[in-house]
Design a protein around this nucleic acid. Structure first.
Lengths: 334, 334
DNA sequence: TTGAAAGCGCTAACAT
DNA sequence: ATGTTAGCGCTTTCAA
């Protein structure tokens, strides 16, 4: 059958070759940055390509080069606005490198085994775990799909042989402890999110160790169990119910949405407790909260993560410095 | 060279064929739901595949079937937590259909032309615009990449020949007007986000028309210009500064993050103005806001969108009913 | 039901 | 610098 639909079909390298009067391999060369091809030929080809609206089929290229330029972005929680900041950063940086982000949702009902297998079948070049609640099981799974390099962004863990790019959580915790001590508080608390044996609460370590230098204990550790505003509220609410007027003066929450929940609970009880969060989500800036928080260096973290998955040799974990963002919630008089 | 690295390489249909003692075409059939193949052969193949950890290469399949099963999800704004709800829904539903989401970030500095072209090169089967601020230019672009069907989710527009799946914004606006009138208010306002000639503020239409039935005008339309909490705050702040005690009693904000900003401004001025938002983001439930909002039927919207891109004939726009979520912010006495 | 040939659109490697 | 052969891993089509 003659090619009646040629106009509707995407044109291929062969079409361009025909129009430019060269072979299709020359067309391929014209689209390969440092291929040996004459200036003349390249121009002819590019002109013809432009006329036909030709753009190389990246799936075909991927098949032949055995490199898809597709990166799997693994997300296990869609409740925290912070994820959106990360997604924004990672998609932007990938796009700028002519790569593309495939979002893999392993939250809730989605079977992570199934989804990661799917990603593997789509030939993702690498997997990036976005600040996920990494479990042993997940790591196991990622390793099973063993051809794929992967890196964890924004989550401390003590699993060895794992590439992790995160904020320097120890220092962050210390800085926050220092800030609160400077305010003159003497009774401190901490609110934690999900817990697993494989993840290490470096933020808490830094916080605790700094206070310890002044012989101060963290007297209350409120376990929210997940990164969830409602849980943050609930756990602070019951703490205040249980403790009456005998409560901590300042609390460091593992992240902003927990902190926001906590602030609401504190407000409900009409108490004054200083609160510091983590992530510096946009909402921290709302006057209702004026939440003092800690900004992670997302751009650097993502850039480093991309470097790691590109060059498996350079593989190494890193802790990057973030920055305290002062508002009002950490002060002793708000 | 003998295949020394066979163990490290992903195994292919040929590997499986060899082990199962059949041809590679039979292997392909074993993985094709209704192919004609004997039960016996299929079992042999599946067993061999399992042994080798073989899974079909979906990129290769895509190339040969001219269908990638990759869907481009176009996102132009990463500030609104509502996007995360949408992303969660769309990735989950796609994954359940053995398809995968490629997130295309056209916010800020990302050139939408470049990104959509990139998506085209990756052979996305379709494009889904997520509640985006659709411009004429964007539509133009999407049409230029003409082989690709696309659909807009969650954004009313009056551009014709465009598949749009959205909440029934007219009814929603009416419901909200009714709710506020029931509270006994008589002076009403509206806060809008970004404006373009191509998008139609159906929510506002419904709101306005319902009030008009009682001969009531919307006396103040605050234009935030973008979906941004800070802008919501700022525009309400200056409204209150300008109007002193002579202000509306109730305001409907185009979405929740605007509403949250507005609430903070109202609080700052120590005023009482009823506020209703839209989207029902998780934060609406925070006690600081107790924001009455409107929940869009995201699951239905996304399901419908997927149906539309799968079957171009069924293409048609739809308005799906959502649901008012009552909290405290709409009441005349909070 | 099964095997074989041809082709999806591209690139690596070799030949000229 | 350019054309050719072969091949990436799969499916479609045609024979047997």
């Amino acid at each position: 059958m003659p090619d009646i639909n040629a106009a509707d079909r995407k044109s291929t390298a062969s079409d361009v070759a025909k129009l430019a009067g060269v072979s299709k391999w020359t067309v391929s060369r014209a689209f390969t940055p440092k291929a040996s091809i004459s200036q003349h030929s390249r121009e002819k080809v590019l002109k013809a390509a432009d006329e036909l609206g030709y753009k190389p089929n990246l799936l075909a290229r991927g098949l032949s080069k055995n490199k898809s330029n597709i990166i799997g972005i693994v997300v296990d929680n869609f409740e925290n606005p912070h994820k959106l900041m990360l997604l924004n950063e990672v998609t932007t940086q990938l796009q700028n490198k002519a790569k593309i982000a495939m979002v893999l949702n392993i939250s809730n009902a989605n079977s992570s085994t199934r989804v990661l297998t799917q990603a593997d079948q789509f030939q993702v070049d690498a997997l990036i775990f976005l600040g996920s609640f990494i479990t042993e099981e997940l790591i196991e799974l990622a390793i099973t799909i063993k051809h794929i390099p992967f890196v964890v962004v924004g989550r401390s863990t003590d699993i060895t042989n794992l590439n992790v790019i995160s904020t320097d959580d120890i220092s962050a915790g210390q800085e926050i402890a220092k800030l609160l001590m400077t305010q003159g508080f003497s009774r401190f608390g901490f609110m934690s999110g999900p817990e697993s044996q494989s993840t290490w609460l470096a933020r808490f370590e830094g916080y605790k160790s700094y206070l310890a230098k002044s012989n101060i204990n963290v007297e209350a550790v409120l376990k929210a169990g997940k990164y969830d505003r409602q849980r943050g509220f609930a756990v602070m609410d019951s703490y205040l119910i249980d403790h009456g007027d005998d409560h901590v003066e300042a609390i460091f929450c593992e992240n902003d949405i927990l902190a926001i929940g906590a602030l609401d609970a504190i407000k409900k009880h009409g108490k004054k407790i200083a609160v510091v969060g983590f992530d510096n989500i946009e909402l921290a800036n709302a006057t209702s909260f004026a939440l003092t928080s800690y900004r992670q260096p997302l751009n650097l973290m993502v850039a480093q993560a991309l470097k790691v998955i590109e060059d498996p040799n350079a593989s190494s974990s890193q802790q990057l410095p973030g920055k305290l963002v002062l508002r009002n919630s950490h002060k002793n008089s708000q």
